[in-house]
């Protein structure tokens, strides 16, 4: 036996077991387990990462995201700036998606970071923090649909910012919607996104009636965009905002 190398299994090996065959589900079959305008249940917990100034963990079935906020702390670059800086960094864990995510060689995380930065930037009172930096680190532990990851990531990041005691104009809440067979499907999963014509993420400050960001991929007519935004907006106001508020109030109560 070769002791200098890592040897494979000596005798037997097993055929890998896959979760489900990927092409079993079709859009025509309808949605599994929920209505078109229903979202997956949200679990949101602020303050799980003790070494960070603020943190939040969000889980919506197979989407799991942890977010840590460090700061406001002194900017490392020496140039003076009147406004604070908001850095957003998104990382996928290698095992987050069905196909392995290679760290560093991945370009997806940067585009997600830009989208989440856009969603958050106008909610943070950066004018109060000269020379300072706020670092937001988002780790996607499990990903079920990129757009819903952006939505869940923005919610987690905003909760973490509030948990860190950073001054905000309001909480950022976001929701994703896909257009599938000319119908609006809220909070699409990976396989639903794959069959959709276009997907949209709406981020807003429900408390102030302000939209911070709309991120749109795929093809949609103007009317469909409006339908999607309205569906997202209703869901945000009716449900998601109160989930975030509840989570924060409970953590502030202790």
């Amino acid at each position: 036996m070769d002791r200098r190398r890592i040897n494979g299994p000596t005798e037997e090996s097993f055929v890998p077991v896959f979760d489900e065959s990927p092409d079993a589900w079709k859009a025509a079959d309808g949605r599994k387990g929920r209505g078109l305008l229903d979202i997956r249940p949200i679990f949101l917990q602020p303050g799980l990462i003790s070494q960070a100034n603020g943190s939040a963990y969000i889980e919506t079935q197979k989407t799991k995201i942890a977010c840590a906020v460090y700061g406001p702390r002194q900017s490392k670059n020496t140039s003076y700036s009147d406004m604070g800086r908001l850095n957003v960094e998104v990382k996928f864990t290698p095992f987050s998606c069905p196909r392995r995510r290679a760290p560093l060689r991945d370009a997806e995380d940067r585009s997600l970071a830009v989208a989440i930065h856009q969603a958050l930037a106008s909610s943070v009172r950066l004018e109060l923090l000269p020379k300072s930096t706020i670092d937001v680190f988002i780790t996607i532990i499990e990903c079920d649909g990129l757009e819903s990851c952006v939505a869940a990531g923005s919610i987690a990041a905003s909760t973490a910012l509030a948990d860190a005691g950073i001054e905000l104009f309001g909480l950022v809440v976001s929701c994703a919607a896909s257009l599938i067979e000319n119908q609006v499907w809220l909070d699409p999963t990976q396989e639903e996104e794959a069959v959709s014509g276009g997907t949209l993420v709406l981020s807003c400050l429900p408390a102030l009636n302000k939209i911070t960001n709309i991120w749109h991929t795929g093809q949609m007519s103007a009317m469909d965009v409006i339908r999607c935004t309205e569906a997202c907006q209703q869901k945000i106001e009716a449900d998601i905002h109160s989930v975030v508020a509840q989570a924060l109030l409970e953590s502030a109560k202790i």
Binding site: P72, R125, A162, G165, E167, G170, L248, L249
Partner: peptide, 28 residues
């Protein structure tokens, strides 16, 4: 904003006479 005092942090509301402040649990 719009002649309304709006909270900007999550925390407890405190008031001294006419001054309203919100104190966050964990801040710098």
């Amino acid at each position: 904003d719009n002649e309304l005092v709006i909270a900007s942090v999550a925390g407890t509301i405190e008031r001294v006479n006419k001054l309203v402040t919100v104190r966050a649990v964990s801040t710098k």
